[in-house]
């Protein structure tokens, strides 16, 4: 554990940055990941970037988190340049289709506009958008919109796409070879936390099973954890 004085200083800095207020509401991801995150889970009302080795993985991972934020009644908005999303594929991840609004916009500035509008709406729980890029200014504006309304934004894209300028967290979801007999709607992923404001990067192998995300403690994950704890 870190030194108590250090922790105190960190808290003071946090107050200055208003991070305490900003990250007061979180949702759980998976046990080991939550313990790792500085606020005990994924902060709600923020912008998160999710890159995927395939967009499908990034989409499924953010769907799980969006569905948790939305609960029974919350609205989820999905904004993309095409109609390749197959809504039935999101059912296993807990998304309620009657609460899902799909928005297609071909031009990237329309997608950026729609994302902004959706994040401003206080009756939206989560926004998933396939966004080309966002510079520092537009990323800050998205963050401010999310903070004012309490909506959570997931900006999705393939790993090859340009990173978003200033997200609160940045994740990478890669597919992980499944065990024999593992269901295709209960996949395993290699999850990397590439960036986390106020926290440290980390890596886990997680599995979606029976509506829960479980961390698989394989060699790699324990090793990184041990290294991180030592450092």
């Amino acid at each position: 554990m870190s030194h108590p004085t250090l922790q105190e200083l960190r808290d003071q800095l946090g107050c200055l940055e208003e991070t305490q207020r900003r990250f007061s509401r979180t949702i759980p991801i998976a046990d080991a990941v939550d313990r790792w995150m500085p606020h005990g889970g994924l902060p709600v009302g923020c912008i998160h970037e999710v890159k995927g080795a395939s967009v499908a993985s990034a989409l499924a991972f953010s769907s799980i988190l969006s569905a948790r934020i939305a609960g029974e009644q919350g609205n989820i908005v999905y904004i993309a340049p095409d109609r390749s999303l197959h809504p039935l594929g999101l059912l296993p991840y807990g998304v309620r289709l009657d609460r899902l609004l799909l928005v297609s916009a071909r031009r990237s500035q329309d997608i950026a506009w729609a994302t902004m509008e959706a994040l401003r709406c206080s009756q939206v729980s989560a926004v998933m958008a396939i966004l080309d890029s966002a510079d520092l200014t537009s990323s800050r504006r998205l963050q401010l919109a999310a903070e004012s309304s309490g909506a959570t934004g997931f900006l999705l894209g393939p790993v090859t796409s340009a990173p978003i300028a200033a997200p609160i967290t940045r994740w990478k979801v890669s597919s992980h070879v499944g065990k024999p007999g593992q269901r295709f709607d209960e996949p395993a992923w290699a999850l990397d936390l590439l960036y986390c404001r106020g926290g440290r990067p980390g890596s886990w192998t997680i599995e979606w099973r029976e509506q829960r995300l479980n961390t698989l403690f394989n060699q790699l994950a324990t090793q990184t954890t041990r290294e991180a704890l030592a450092g």
Binding site: N75, V77, P87, L97, D98, L100, L101, L102, V103, S104, A105, D110, W113, A114, E117, A118, R120, C121, S122, Q123, V124, S149
Partner: peptide, 23 residues
Amino acid sequence: ESSFNALVDRFGMKLGFDQVNRI
């Protein structure tokens, strides 16, 4: 104007209502 219906309308007006879908 911050309600969800208002948001759907703004989407529809700008992008066309055929681009704003429910399942």
